[in-house]
Amino acid sequence: MSIIGLPIAVAILVVVIMLARKLGTIVVTFMSWRKSAIIAGVYLLGLILSVVIAAVLPNHGFGLMERSHTGGGIQKGNVWTTSYSIRTQKDFESQPGLYLNSRQTFKIDQRAVKLGFAPNPGHFQIYVEQKEADDGKIDVSTYSTPFYVGETDYTKLLQPPKVIFQDGLLVIEPVQQTLTLKLFKSNFTQSQFEGKNAVNLQNGLSSSFGWSEVLLRVPKSMKIDKGQNYLQYLDKD
């Protein structure tokens, strides 16, 4: 809040409180202290009831359920280093931060020996692994690196890039996505004991974007024309 905004907000609040007090004085002329006590009790009861209602409301429908990491928890600090250690296909599976968000298999003509790439507008990191056999299939898996808002992992919400295979050309297009998140924060009277009340405006407001990684598993003898894309060939273990 700006230096001008704060006094204005306080001034407005003071006026509101004075009006509220005036309102209270007017109301009290019509109501005895007994009625006030009853109203206070009903108000408190209503609030207690709201806790009970909140507790029993079903949790389906909430879009933002936190992802649980199966491959061991990943810390927020590891986000940027996640994909650098990928050298083999197994690394994808064992990498705890990576989230598999799509898997597609394209059948190719057995006579086709060449795979071309359309320009990659999303600048995805593409990893290529050559299979042991010529099975006539290209397996495309897309992964996302962790996407955090504050301390919460929302990688699961990210849409995978669109993958199309046509006439020997593989097209990987980014999907434009807008996420609107409404998150609950502990009241400052609670978060203080978690050490979160230190004056740091960035605290809890940082976000890191999940980057897409694409893994291609291609038949053994397939030749690849990478175009303008940067490909990284994976070791065979």
Binding site: Q176, T178, K182, L183, K185
Partner: peptide, 18 residues
């Protein structure tokens, strides 16, 4: 808060009884 990357726009609103 709001953050934008090439493909993703994130709008976050926090709610509490503060």
């Amino acid at each position: 808060m709001s953050s934008v990357s090439e493909t993703l726009r994130v709008n976050v609103k926090y709610f509490s009884a503060d």
